[in-house]
Amino acid sequence: MKPREFLAHSGRQFGTLVGLFALCAVLWALTPHFLTVSNLLNVAQQTSINAVIAVGLTFVIISGGIDLSVGSLVAFSGVVTASLLQRAVPVPLALLAGLVTGLACGLVNGLLITYGRLPPFIATLGLMSVARGGALLYTDGRPVSGFDEEFRWLATGEVLRVPVPVVIMIVVYVIAHFVLRRTPFGRYLFAIGGNEEAALLSGVRVRLHKTVVYGVCGLLSALAAVMLTARLNSAQPIAGINYELDAIAATVIGGTSLLGGQGSVVGTLIGALIMGVLRNGLNLLGVSSFIQQVVIGAVIILAVLLDTAFKRPKR
């Protein structure tokens, strides 16, 4: 692509990136603790879980849907993995079981939406409650905790001095970006989100791809669940409450339209990092958690406000 076309394509992400850098610059000026290698890795690690969930949500939102169940799926897949680990099931098998749980729940979402013709909001709202209840039932409401080092490596290990969660996040984003930009599946998501009828009449298997995208979202929630469980050395049935909102926030800050048909995972990554950096920075500055909530809300509103304000005259 020529530079001009690249900018037209990626201008929005570029803007968000400038916002992220600006944020970092301000924090650098305000506190000496921010711009250190260990703190930046720390931020990346803290961002990784939200970032992984947000990829799945970005896919779903680009396809014109929404998934409210991700937080509950984190809890459910987490306790499934954890309970298997406690029964001395080999780590790879327990991981696989957790991921399959997430995938299966996601596919249920997808089938309810495509074949059941439920609006995505309703279907995933339902599953949000079902999965949460399932997690509580399965564990009798108690956290499942205490795993061996092999599993904990997912949180504590390092690859080339980079923490494993950050490595997982990077790998997920590279794959997701490739899928979105270079595979028919990715292209179809944009087409379905942009105009489902036109996609159908162009021979796109709309129902298949819509079902799959919710499966992917569930799978990524389960991956986040595994990361969270390893990090806390515990899986809680009440984990992941409000995670869907954090993930939606990252997606929206990253420039993905809630109306579907446009967006990018690169933007979402930057959005998730903005949220992570904000929280980290406000902690470092000792700002109270109440003000933090106000600031994060304001950033979401600001990002979308600027987006729409500067898009309008171009039409």
């Binding site: 087409a191 942009g194 036109a198 009449l201 162009s202």
Partner: peptide
């Protein structure tokens, strides 16, 4: 507008969709 094109996508993406 409602059935033929995905208006938010590019000329290339629309042309190649099927």
């Amino acid at each position: 507008k409602h059935q033929g094109l995905v208006l938010g996508l590019s000329v290339q993406e629309n042309t190649c969709l099927p």
